[in-house]
Amino acid sequence: MNAHAIGSVRDWMSREPVTVTPEASIEHVIRLMRARGIRHLLVMDGERLAGIVSNRDVRRLLLGGEHSIPPSAPVTRVMTESPVTVSPETPLTVAARELLDRKIGALPVVEGDRPIGILTKSDALEALLAWAEGPE
């Protein structure tokens, strides 16, 4: 039973994460998520990771009433600023623990300051499943 047989975040992350700028409208984000079949996007302010937005965040749009946010509003209104990140070398099991403890669906993977991928709960599940079904 070896946590290292599962590998590190780099082995299981999705590379080339889909990104938007902070000015992108929530409407645009929704369309992008639908088109690409994804649930998380990174918000990039130039080279800087400004935030992460999930499809749960944009769900707020449908609340209606005075608390609703118009679809044309920028994604900054709903995104999570300065998100928790992991390095590609972090063992996958440690990253999975972070996802669970913080109750979040995805972790941006950064090398220094540069996002190089995203690790979602599904990715982590796939990794652990591969281990659970492994050759041993």
Binding site: N2, P91, V94, R97
Partner: peptide, 16 residues
């Protein structure tokens, strides 16, 4: 996911 992470030894930091 929670269950599998626990089965791994709670996903605690670990080196060999």
């Amino acid at each position: 996911l929670e269950l599998l992470v626990k089965a791994m030894g709670a996903g605690e930091p670990s080196s060999r």
